[in-house]
Design a protein around this nucleic acid. Structure first.
Length: 482
RNA sequence: GGCCUCAUCGUCUAAUGGUUAGGACACCAGGUUUUCAUCCUGGCAAUCGGAGUUCGAUUCUCCGUGAGGUCACCA
């Protein structure tokens, strides 16, 4: 007996939005394939023309590549079991459908949508679930491709194993005559994915929780086609912040590209998404891709849904940013820099970037953190009036502190050590607490809510510029209304 | 309403038929003689409820409760 190769697939539909939960399913499918040395397929499930959004396929591919989930076969990577766009496989589905008709396991649905709706309303009124098979037509017409084609189910109970959920079972009451081919000629997901998985040799079907209740119907179809069941793995949903429903666009959820555009690193997204509902049983919190391939296991995927926690994402992003080599950081930051920063001397710019590295939670933070290095800051005296220590001081006192600072720094050699001791000397001559003296200097220099260390900032900014800013700040404060 | 699934700190989670129920994020306090951040130390904080099995249950069973999913010519 040959050892069966693992084949997994990620099968999103091109509806324009790559949800993190969907992508996580893709990631896990990729991991299962990679750790077994198997094959990973990207298959586009575009059987619903109405919901299709232009450009989605490219978007999906970008998202998948962004996380480094390379696939062996996909819409742009032809293979023997392709094509990998369902809309290009219509003849295949029709062949299978004809075989099912010949076997007496599929029939044309003669009802109008109105009639169907009526049945559905009836069931609802009786507070019963709707089952089409209660209305099976006695003599269905010959299927000419213009009517929906339905599966002739053989209701029975099922129990099956799910790699994540464990043993599952249902009674025969959930089995129904589901639609195989729609009246527009396209197959339903329900039919297409079974055909494709069989043709493509998919061994592990990894998908979201919403499919768990239709799985017995799929099992009934596998049986009708005498197909071997694949291994099932059902992923719990990722919930919104309140934890009360599936995460969606309305909760401010962005697709992965959106997060990356905001300055989250791909490696952050990978590690974050992977640990949303999975861990390896150790106290490890951060995973690189290679770690995941080595340590991932479907068996350790959580059964319950996890909430998407932005704060944890931020923390993790800060962690990955701090791990970046300075040169690499500069490269990643390029897209986010202001025009002024881009025009600056490369060596100066690099020094500023390195000074800011520890403080970045997101790449896009670079501007608020460093703009004052590249252009004149706009004075914002609310930084003083909202400062819990500084707001107690009068304008005269603040100006006095800045004057003393100006005097002392003008006579200081411009090195970090000299500036440091000059500043320390000021503590004694002014008799002020460090938090007051250094906060007002910092604000005068940067006019920013936060900024890198004061001594290093001064060194980098240069003596003339630093003194000029202190002088300018004095007149701003003099004019300020308390 | 039927059916299915799930349930440990606020959040993500670990653990076992016997532990002071562990870690991380967040939060709070202190330190690194300046902000913010990093880093370090400490703190707060959880087994949904009720029965049963057991010497012992967070863990096993049952019943509740709560939450999610599903009952489409959507996936």
């Amino acid at each position: 007996m040959l050892k069966q190769t693992v084949v997994t697939r990620f099968a999103p539909s091109p509806t324009g939005f790559m949800h993190v939960g969907a992508l996580r399913t893709g990631l896990f499918a990729w991991l299962v394939a990679k750790q077994a040395g198997g094959t990973f397929i990207l298959r586009i499930e575009d059987t619903d023309k109405n919901r299709e959004v232009e450009g989605s396929v490219e978007h999906i591919i970008q998202c998948v590549r962004m996380l480094g989930l390379e696939y062996e076969y996909g819409p742009d990577k032809p293979g023997a079991t392709g094509p990998y766009m369902q809309s290009q496989r219509l003849e295949i589905y029709h062949e299978w459908a004809k075989k099912m008709i010949a076997d007496g396991r599929a029939y044309a649905d003669p009802y109008t949508p109105e009639e169907l709706n009526h049945f559905r309303e009836e069931a609802k009124a009786k507070k019963q679930p709707f089952l089409y098979r209660n209305h099976r037509p006695d003599n269905p017409p010959v299927w000419d491709g213009r009517l929906p084609l339905r599966f002739l189910s053989k209701p029975r109970d099922y129990s099956w194993n799910d790699e994540v959920m464990g043993d599952l079972k249902t009674g025969e009451e959930v089995i129904d005559d589901i639609v195989l081919i729609k009246s527009d000629g396209y197959p339903t997901y329900n039919f297409a994915h079974i055909v494709d998985d069989a043709e493509m040799g998919v061994t592990h079907v990894i998908r979201g929780q919403e499919f768990i209740s239709s799985t017995p119907n799929y099992l009934n179809i596998y049986d009708a086609l005498s197909l071997k069941y694949p291994i099932f793995a059902t992923m719990p949903h990722i919930m919104n912040d309140q934890g009360n429903k599936k995460l969606g666009k309305r909760d401010g959820a962005k697709d992965v590209l959106g997060y990356i555009a905001e300055g989250y690193l791909p490696e952050t997204m990978l590690s974050f998404i992977a640990t949303l509902g999975w861990n390896d049983g150790t106290t490890q919190e951060i995973y690189e891709r290679a770690d995941l391939v080595e340590k991932f296991s479907l068996k350790r995927v959580q059964k319950s849904g996890a909430r998407f926690d932005q704060r944890r994402l931020q923390w993790m992003n800060g962690h990955f940013i701090r791990e970046l080599e300075p040169k690499e950081l500069a490269l990643r930051l390029e897209r986010f820099l202001s025009p002024a920063a881009k025009k600056a001397e490369p060596i100066y710019r690099q020094a500023v970037i390195e000074l800011c590295q520890d403080r970045l939670k997101s790449l896009s933070d670079i501007n608020t953190l460093s703009n004052f290095f590249f252009e004149q800051p706009t004075p914002d005296t609310s930084l003083i009036s909202s400062h819990k220590q500084l707001k107690k001081l009068s304008n005269a006192e603040l100006v006095g502190l800045l004057s003393a600072t100006h005097d002392s720094l003008s006579e200081t050699e411009w090195s970090q050590d000299a500036i440091q001791s000059s500043l320390n000397g000021l503590l004694e001559t002014t008799g002020q607490k460090p938090v007051i003296l250094f906060s007002i200097i910092r604000i005068a220099i940067t006019w920013a809510p936060f900024s890198p260390e004061l001594d290093k900032t001064l060194v980098l900014l240069g003596k003339d510029e630093a003194l000029a800013r202190i002088a300018a700040a004095k007149s701003v404060i003099t004019d300020r209304q308390s």
